[in-house]
Design a protein around this nucleic acid. Sequence first.
DNA 1: CTGAAAGCGCTTACAG
DNA 2: CTGAAAGCGCTTACAG
Lengths: 345, 345
Amino acid sequence: MSPRGTSPTIVDVAREAGVSIKTVSRVLNHEPGVHETTRDQVLKVVEALRYRPKQSARSLAGGRSFLIGLLYYDPSANFVGSVQQGATLRCRELGYHLVVESLHNDAPDLRQQIDRMVMALRPDGMILTPPLCDNPEVLAALRDSGTPCVLMSPERDIRSVPSVRMDDVHAAEEITNLLLSLGHRHIAFIKGPPDQSASAARYQGFVNALQAHDLQPDPELVQPGNFTFASGRDAAHKLLSGRQRPTAVFASNDDMALGVLAAAHRLGLNVPNELSVAGFDDSPTAALVWPPLTTVRQPVVEMARMAVEMLVTGPRNAVSAPVDETDLHRVLPHELVVRDSTRAR
Amino acid sequence: MSPRGTSPTIVDVAREAGVSIKTVSRVLNHEPGVHETTRDQVLKVVEALRYRPKQSARSLAGGRSFLIGLLYYDPSANFVGSVQQGATLRCRELGYHLVVESLHNDAPDLRQQIDRMVMALRPDGMILTPPLCDNPEVLAALRDSGTPCVLMSPERDIRSVPSVRMDDVHAAEEITNLLLSLGHRHIAFIKGPPDQSASAARYQGFVNALQAHDLQPDPELVQPGNFTFASGRDAAHKLLSGRQRPTAVFASNDDMALGVLAAAHRLGLNVPNELSVAGFDDSPTAALVWPPLTTVRQPVVEMARMAVEMLVTGPRNAVSAPVDETDLHRVLPHELVVRDSTRAR
DNA sequence: CTGAAAGCGCTTACAG
DNA sequence: CTGAAAGCGCTTACAG
């Protein structure tokens, strides 16, 4: 049973079970057309010998590696952590394994790095996270290699390339509705960087919710930001020392919301009594600050599970009916996380 | 060049270069004893055909998978993110790939999960992070399978099992020395959970530094904690409302230090003017709070690089001299990160 | 429902 | 310095 000693092979199982290796293979791969008695017998021997087929042999002979690749850029992002969590779990259930590669989005030899991985490992599918899933070079390399991909939260969907995402617009609407329902009417909004589609989507949700209440965003209460702590803090300083102070701030991500919290503390403003603050992302820090942040949790773990599933049970197993575009682009439900940083005014 | 079409094989390269596949193999594996002219010719063809050996074939024939496994438990830990960062980079340099598996430390089928991975993939080595690297069941499974391991920051070193760590004692001494040099004499300490060796080590460093200044820890200023935000906040409440308030608090990890910050804010205590606070770990949040936290950065990325290296250039390539125990247990230098939460009293 | 043969693409001894 | 042969442990057609 030691892989470095003499672990059993399919031949051992076949001999012990009194069948051919082909039959053992059939049982192991859940192929139909094996007599139940035979199947049971084989499974018993497999169990007794603690036999596990060797991935390299399966891969070489069958052309499937049982490997899913995960390409990511920012190692510190908790997003990636959750992706892996969901992906490795689903992989395990499906008999696959996850190979990860940390790439620089602007590395000069990006293409070569990807080619090397694809050629060596032949992963059966690849999961791409932002910003790599929006990098044309990455997409091209993978397309040329014929590796199936799923994009996680890409900037925009690509025809015929599967993707998984959440609904930023609706989530931002919900946060805004929460603040409105708490009685807030002067709600500030801190935007994300203009080159990220999530920024526009979240702002759109904010506007939608206001308009549904016959309100318009106050231009003075809408500040630019770039998803960093510092940009949130600076925007908050402007907002909170302006002539008409908002009673609530919706920062379109958590890092900026933390900046708002810091600015409020410095200005001696009590959150949530004098100012409500909401974020977006449910970063690990969001629950650790004072007061804990009201925010939106992306269903990242579920998205990753879904991505693996689309890859594994994808083109190969699907009936070859014309693929439905809506099936290709999945939207998973998010979750509003109401904590102590928001309060009725 | 498309792996799903007809990618070149070693036979193609051999034919094109006018040599045997054995010679191609020699060149690819940097084996000695190939004429320089032959080598150049082969490499030229390899380049032209964009040939990459297929891992599954190499693995099946050669008994090496070129895969390093990473087993981890807590997906949210930024520790794991840094480990992967370092590990994938070093793997790439060495022609290896990293397979990750998220495991529950107390899963009933833990052994089975590990066996499955080891038997299927036959990784050439495995990196274990806390708390898995201290789990006897995990260690036993890997030992039985003959898979070489490196433990990252294990509770305690195991004879003949390689490990990589930092020096908690020294790091804690340095933080304490910093506070002492800022003029603090009433320094509180918040401990970690007693069942983690890092807790004891950090406290030891704290005591060492005090004693080197002819000081003794004040029992009233030493509080228990368990490395959580809440425990740090509670400990701080006690410390800061006691009859003799410390001028500085050394929380033995960042999460607890954040708790101290929160408690100070609530009590209206200005950090760092009225209270200095130091943490340990340099978590991502440490730089994002107000004021930014003075702390210690573990050399996690470097530790992971080292772990991969020990695995790859380990037993196989090492001269078979008796293994030096000190070579087996590496200690990498940490870094003091002085930010704004500490100030001269 | 079951099996014998061929082959996936490399590396390992073994020769020369 | 170079090569012909065997074999790693499976799966894929193809038969029966």
